[in-house]
Simulated assay, not measured.
Amino acid sequence: MAHVQEIQLQIRGAPDEESEHGRDGSKADTRRSTTRGSFLWWITVAVDMFMVLCGTTVATLLGRLYYNSGGNSKWMATLTQSGGSPLLLVPLLMTPAPPAEERRPAASKLWPIYAGIGVLIGFDNLMYSYALQYLPVSTFSLVAASQLAFNAITSRLINAQRFTALIANSVMVLTFSAALLGVGSSDDGDSSSGGAPHSKYPVGFLLVLAAFALILSLFEATFERVIRARTLRWVLAMQMNTNLVASAVSVAGLLASGDWRTIPAEMAAFRDGRARYVLTLAGTAVAWQAAAAGMVRLIARVSSLFANVTGTLALPLVPVFAVALFGDRMTGIKIVAMLMAVWGFLSYAYQHYVDGRRAENGKAECHVCAARGESDAVLPA
């Protein structure tokens, strides 16, 4: 009888040990796999999505307001997209210190990555500023969804992203919604383009489709292969350091281009005075950092493609506010494009729901098989 109990305890102990340390001996990996897709996990993802939605919407509208109110320095507009990064030092100092046994990549590996990605972010921010000036805010924000198709390619090549029918449908629908607006942009009657001629719209389209997709994939690859941790502390550190480099690029461009000499006159001529000029730039900087924080956290928690899909969900919100703030006209093409964008996101979200349900069913089957194995092991004795 004692021998039977010993066998039973050994069999029951094996699954527990594997669930504690994981198949590769990594306790953290197993803990992440058990919490991914849970209710708490979805709550944290929803918070990150909210940051992306609100931050992107406010930052895009304030960026358009800067140009419409008399701002003309593209390097200053570029600086606002990364210049708020020192604010991240406050939450970074408030996060708990990492445990002594936590693996920390060597600085010689991290700083070249920070520098490389930061330079890419700096130039991509400049292209974003050009595009925002050339395109109406409603058209620009939805056409930016075309980045998703490029991000799908880089995610597949760099991050080995798994594609299903639902994910492919999401990417295609969002891309078609952007193409639909591109076709109808010449007749949309938007007034928020800063008076840019329609001949410059294609330039804006090309500038929007820049290096953003590549940057997101590089973020995910860094978390996966170099840092190998997804904690809040690493997310904040990654965002702050890369944005500091991007800010340095923007300041260098501001000085080299001579735009810094025009800032006092631009501030004096700004609509409603200097205070509104400062508040507009400061609000833009804070909004971009909030959006970037949510974006990087989504990359760390889920994937770069999911983060980009979430960004496209923010795009239909912008035209609604642009109608009230800038006098844009809500055309039928934009309405159809917005519905397509929402449908594309829901398709991707449903794929994650299906994956979560399959994971739960797989765990339940494993528990049943383990229970059957225990009973079979006890009966012969």
Rank of each mutant, 00 (worst) to 15 (best):
M1E: 14
A2T: 04
H3Y: 04
V4E: 10
Q5W: 13
E6Q: 11
Q8H: 08
Q10R: 15
G13R: 08
P15I: 03
D16V: 06
D16E: 10
E18G: 11
G25A: 02
A28C: 00
T35V: 10
R36E: 13
R36N: 11
R36G: 07
T44P: 00
M51W: 07
V52M: 13
L53V: 15
C54H: 09
V58Q: 03
A59K: 11
A59G: 10
R64Y: 02
R64C: 01
R64N: 12
L65N: 08
G70W: 05
G71L: 07
N72D: 13
W75F: 06
M76D: 03
T80Y: 07
S85F: 13
S85R: 06
P91S: 08
L93C: 11
T95L: 15
P96H: 12
P99F: 02
E102D: 12
R103Y: 12
R104K: 15
R104F: 09
L110M: 12
W111N: 01
A115N: 03
I117S: 07
I117E: 05
G118F: 01
N125Q: 06
L126G: 00
Y128C: 00
Y130I: 04
Q133E: 12
T139F: 14
F140G: 15
L142K: 11
L142V: 14
A149W: 12
N151S: 12
N151Y: 01
R156F: 10
I158T: 04
I158Y: 08
N159W: 08
N159I: 03
R162S: 14
A165K: 11
V173Q: 01
L174A: 11
D188L: 07
H198N: 09
S199E: 07
K200W: 07
L206P: 01
V208W: 02
S217C: 10
S217H: 03
R228T: 00
L236C: 01
M238I: 06
M240V: 03
A246L: 03
S247H: 02
V249M: 13
S250F: 07
A252V: 15
L255M: 14
G258I: 03
D259A: 07
A265S: 10
M267P: 04
A269Q: 09
G273C: 06
T280Q: 08
T280D: 14
L281Y: 06
A282S: 12
G283C: 05
T284W: 05
V286A: 09
A287D: 07
A287N: 06
W288S: 04
Q289P: 07
A290N: 08
A291K: 11
A292D: 00
G294V: 04
G294A: 04
R297K: 12
S303K: 03
S303E: 10
S304Q: 06
F306A: 12
F306V: 06
N308L: 12
L313S: 14
V320Y: 07
F321M: 14
A322Y: 00
R329C: 09
I333A: 08
M338P: 07
L339M: 09
L339G: 15
A341L: 06
F345D: 06
F345E: 00
S347T: 04
A349P: 03
Y350K: 12
Y350N: 11
V354Q: 14
D355I: 04
D355Y: 05
G356H: 05
R357E: 14
R358A: 11
N361Y: 09
G362Q: 08
E374P: 03
P380K: 05
A381C: 06
